[in-house]
Design a protein around this nucleic acid. Sequence first.
DNA 1: CTGAAAGCGCTAACAA
DNA 2: TTGTTAGCGCTTTCAG
Lengths: 329, 329
Amino acid sequence: MATINDVAAKAGVSTATASRALNGKSTVDPALAARVLSAAAELGYQPNGPARNLRRQETAVLALIISDVENPFFTSIARGVEDVAQAVGYSVVLCNSDENPEKERRYIDVAIQERVAGVVLSPTGTAPNVDLLTARRTPLVAVDRPLPAAADMVLVDTRSAAKQATTHLISQGYDRIGCITGPAGIQTADDRLAGYKDALRASKRRTSARFARRAEFRADGAFEAAIDLLSQPDRPDALLVANSAMAVGVLEALSKLDLRLGADVGVVAFDDAPWASLVDPPLSVVSQPAYDIGKVAAQLLMARIADSSLPYTTTTLNATLITRGSSTR
Amino acid sequence: MATINDVAAKAGVSTATASRALNGKSTVDPALAARVLSAAAELGYQPNGPARNLRRQETAVLALIISDVENPFFTSIARGVEDVAQAVGYSVVLCNSDENPEKERRYIDVAIQERVAGVVLSPTGTAPNVDLLTARRTPLVAVDRPLPAAADMVLVDTRSAAKQATTHLISQGYDRIGCITGPAGIQTADDRLAGYKDALRASKRRTSARFARRAEFRADGAFEAAIDLLSQPDRPDALLVANSAMAVGVLEALSKLDLRLGADVGVVAFDDAPWASLVDPPLSVVSQPAYDIGKVAAQLLMARIADSSLPYTTTTLNATLITRGSSTR
DNA sequence: CTGAAAGCGCTAACAA
DNA sequence: TTGTTAGCGCTTTCAG
């Protein structure tokens, strides 16, 4: 594979000049530069990234470590990050931690070893992994979930959104409202449950553990939880569901138990999936600004890469309740 | 940041010995090795990836360039690739070409420059990009779409699946069957259309261009196409739809036109989305083995990385028709 | 089994 | 403006 020396030789200049020409430095004679460029083209020269990165002690790549590639919420974040990064000439590598602290740790190690310029992370909840990054002062932005560490964060005001959604269900005349949320320890799962309880308390209702369930952020776990919840004699007549994958499980459970969405059991779910308006009645949702989360996170990261002395910031974006038929009798 | 020299110094050995110990070479005194390892741990030593890659002239990373991160079909492929890569100690970086030849080209350049060990690619259809890779003998596996170039491929027998799905619609008594597929030039889009025509011909029906439409592989384009198709006086009474994002658009169009799914317009769509069984009636689909595509692709890639002289293979996996209510009157 | 030393390809002082 | 040269951190001969 052709090296910069081959290019230089072919163009009859030194490697230094070739390097300068290839990198568009203005301090090189246009005629020479042209010769270098055409030599490079003829040889099909592609710079050796590792060599360049080693020498420069920096790379133009960002690592984006997310907890679930198959969750549209996170892929939207990915697009946001990518669009910003592309625009300033950075590449982004997407890593899937799969909600697994060990995988997260492995990818953080890789990010450190490859000396990426910065990391966008949706943390799985274990602080020690993140310390690896902060100890090395690797620029870091946390998305979706807060971090105890000193870092920029881009979050969603999920607790108040959950409260608002639950209040909406109450105002629609639902009386025994349940909640299906994610695993304990995942902040967004806890926040959604907390917001749900906030709303019940605000309307002077008792909150009962009998009506709250936790499961993985997936359809199957939510299906079991919903079956469980709705098989009680005094079953809930409405449900707040913590994400769209879980909503699939809940709707399956409803169908299995022959309960009508809306009429028998009102439902509001987090995340506005493309199919939400296709079910009958259409699903009410809490829409999160995922793309913007990614965009803001990438902008913060680029800013910090440029100036590491910036103060840490926390940006909280708002989710919006979209009411459709599933939350009306 | 601590280098291997720091580790060596702290352990009181040469860098060579430190390197050997760190890499688990058997030719090093256990006592020294232990000293090196603990020195590394104390210093929080992380190897410098670029330096190692430069020296070794190889990396343990795979690039996976897919045409749409937000399409669950491709993210499933990603999981398949990742699972086998992880198992053998490779990292995979996910790049999103967005069905855009230029972006694809940019990512291929990055892959070459970073000297990745191999590439899994769902091509956007332009041969020159791929030549960049083959010219450099970078191990390459194409997924989902065939390549003119010499490379391993993992495909789905999408044409015969389309034929089978269309035949199914015919057998269910639908008479004027239409097809909404992706852009011309994308092989899978063309194949699905071809399979659709195969079925019509086999049952002695005329194929009419009036009943076929193309759009981007997205909901909005498919929505327009469906509105257009179904607004004709002699409208289709069934539709074969080329992917699940498009299915969303088609179902929205049905709802807008007050046409009942199944009864008025039978539908079979490619890709078994999680929500497919939630709509009423449940959606009949052609389920593609996306995860397996990724798995097989990664296995082929690893094999080729190990031995570049292997003959090129094409693996064709089968899609399966899952009939549900949307294709019955 | 261990160490000294070369060199991967590139960029950035420093000189000219 | 151009060339010479050092060296980024690592692995790997080659001697010992």
